[in-house]
Simulated assay, not measured.
Amino acid sequence: MRLRAILEGIKRFVGREGSTRSGTGPDEVSALLIDTFAEDGGEEAGRGGTVSTAAIRAACRRMQGVKTKGDLLRIIADETAAYDLRDLEAMNARFERKVSHLPEDYRDRLLSSVREEIFGAHHRLVLLSRNGGGRELDEPLAPAFGGYCSMVAEACTAKARENDPKYLYLKYLLSAFTMFVVEEPAHPVGTPFPGGQIVDEWEGTYLCPVRDLADDVAYALCPYCPAIQSTEPTFPEMRARRQERRRRECLANYWTNYKG
């Protein structure tokens, strides 16, 4: 299975020597973070009712037709208005159940990132749609957005063959806001992967330790994420090392060009 091979590669890439602990389930955690279908619990929709694939496909076509971030923001706000706080809580509760067996220290850090991914994104979406933004909302959308809409329509249609796609669609809507309107990674900075590496930011660039390893996972967010593949490990302590390296480079440049 292609996903299994990818997960094995991710474990080798992000793992820190001697850091694997019994029961951490690195395969499962990596799948939850990368494979959107694995993250979606598959339960039936709650009291808010279902969302038809016809409605989702129609919304995706509307989104494909917009040109600016502001236009996309308005459609996403309209679509997410059908959901309420209970839906967000249900999404979060699903993920909590799936990772309940993980070691507490790692689980708490992971859940903190997931809550930001769900509740934080929704809060920012509501505020921006109500209060408006600056000129950045007049900026054109990234070229990959058309492909993202097609992927969402296909993914929700596939999910509908098994269960209601309501929460999967909400996941994609929030991710569209995060990745294409505010241009941030689908998983917030600080999201921990098994082995210790994290999604990071350095000098205005978002870094992900598994970005290029997950491009072939069906319906994944990774191919559309603005984060780039990190070229060096992204353990939390690496930020201090990068800062020290940059300081040394600046000093070397100063002595070479001004005091040399």
Rank of each mutant, 00 (worst) to 15 (best):
V199I: 03
D200A: 14
F180T: 13
V199D: 01
L207M: 12
W202V: 04
I198A: 06
M179I: 11
D212L: 05
F193K: 01
T205S: 11
S175M: 06
V189L: 08
A176Y: 07
V181C: 04
T178L: 07
S175G: 10
V199M: 11
G196N: 05
E201Q: 13
A176C: 09
Q197R: 12
L213I: 03
G196I: 10
T191E: 08
E184S: 13
G196F: 09
T178C: 08
P188H: 15
P209G: 12
F177P: 08
T205V: 08
D200S: 14
V210D: 08
C208N: 14
G195V: 09
T205G: 07
W202D: 03
E203C: 04
P185I: 02
M179A: 15
V182Y: 00
P209R: 10
P194K: 08
A186Y: 09
D200L: 06
T191W: 04
P209C: 08
I198L: 14
G204R: 05
R211L: 05
V182M: 01
F180P: 10
Q197P: 12
A186S: 15
F180D: 01
G196W: 11
Q197M: 09
Y206D: 06
C208M: 07
S175R: 09
E183Q: 12
A176K: 09
V199Q: 12
T178V: 12
T178S: 15
F177Q: 02
W202K: 00
G196S: 08
P185D: 10
